[in-house]
Computed example of a mutant assay.
Amino acid sequence: MRYVITGAGSGIGQAVATLASHTADSAGTGPVRLALLDRDAESVEAVAAELRGTGAECLPLVVDLGDPAAAGKAVEQAVSAFGGLDALVSNAGISSADALEDLSLDTYQRTFDVNTRATFLLARAAFPALRDSRGAIVATASISATHPTPPLGMYSASKAALKMMIQQMAVEWGRHGIRANCVSPGPTDTGLTRGSFGDARDAAARANRRYREAVSPMRKIARAQDIAEAVLFLAGPRAGHITGVDLPVDGGLSLTVMPLTGGTPGYRLDEIAQEATAR
């Protein structure tokens, strides 16, 4: 398998790359080939060095996906190096805690540039190679694409647009053998969420984590590996007849709106808060 993976220097992208590096080449003809894209040179080089130890062929590329010219160039480099492409994993994303009334135009534009436009540019550049291989596109959306999430400003809107764009690709490019799907994580332990609920040294983060775990049916926060497993399933041959789906990987969190707001016994917010405090 030949992959382009964005945001590969940390978090979910790194987890996808790590799992992919242990996946045998489907044709048995050579190593897994990974084009690892990230804007942090040190991080992506370190991931590439580690994964080469598994036998994977790695091409680390320092890319700012907010630059409209960068996506196409990176895909061209990957296709040239690997002789084609089997899967595009568009995972890189950004967020900012801005209420709509305070949101600057620059933040608005940057959020859509990275979270939405970059996937389009990557996919458009990868289209000929994916058509040749009858390959797959998997984008990381969010349950925030379905559920507005204050105070993340344009994050929810950018992810909602991403979901629709992926569905559009599924419909338009299916006749070429290209599949396009999303995964939508809920709360997940990554560097991006460390300040919110991942820093065990911070009392507010610990309290937020306990509450988030308490409102989730599975009573836990996802690991980056949990999301990566879903990504690689959708990118691989076992999902060969699946396209245009948005797969929530949220421990059932998106199912809890009615129990929580309806005050169902065992799911009332006061009871949830008590459970979280007791943990």
Rank of each mutant, 00 (worst) to 15 (best):
A71Q: 01
A48N: 04
A78E: 04
T23H: 09
T107L: 07
A15E: 14
P248L: 09
D38T: 04
A99I: 02
L85D: 02
V231F: 11
Q109M: 09
D98Y: 09
S96F: 06
Q77L: 07
M258W: 11
L19Q: 15
V79N: 00
A203P: 12
P148V: 06
N91I: 02
L103C: 12
D98I: 00
R206I: 03
L232M: 11
A97I: 12
S80M: 00
E50W: 03
P187N: 14
S90E: 00
A161I: 10
A200P: 14
G93H: 01
A20F: 09
I272E: 09
R134N: 04
Y267I: 05
L122M: 13
V231R: 10
V44P: 06
S10C: 11
A200G: 05
A123G: 13
M1H: 13
G244S: 12
A214K: 05
A235C: 15
W173H: 11
R110E: 00
G53T: 03
A70L: 05
L130C: 08
T116I: 03
A273D: 15
A8R: 11
A129V: 05
P185L: 05
G236W: 13
I227Y: 07
E101Q: 13
A99Q: 09
T149P: 05
N208E: 15
L260D: 12
I272D: 05
A87R: 01
I272P: 06
G7T: 09
R219G: 05
A278P: 06
L85H: 00
P187G: 04
D113V: 08
T23M: 13
D270Y: 07
F82H: 13
D202P: 03
D40N: 15
C182Y: 06
T6H: 09
A278E: 14
L36M: 04
A78S: 01
A222N: 14
L121R: 07
A141V: 11
G244M: 09
G251E: 10
G72Q: 08
A141N: 04
M218V: 15
A97V: 14
D132W: 00
S216V: 07
I12Q: 05
S95C: 03
A118W: 11
S104R: 10
N91E: 01
Y267V: 09
A71L: 03
Y155I: 07
L269M: 15
P248S: 09
G262L: 11
A118T: 08
L130W: 06
I5A: 02
L59D: 05
D189T: 12
G251D: 10
L103G: 04
R110G: 01
R110T: 08
G83P: 01
P148L: 01
V75W: 02
A235F: 12
A78T: 00
P217T: 04
P151D: 07
P60H: 00
A27G: 14
L234M: 08
L37E: 03
A41M: 08
L103T: 13
S21H: 05
D106P: 00
S156E: 01
D102R: 13
G9P: 09
S216G: 10
I227M: 12
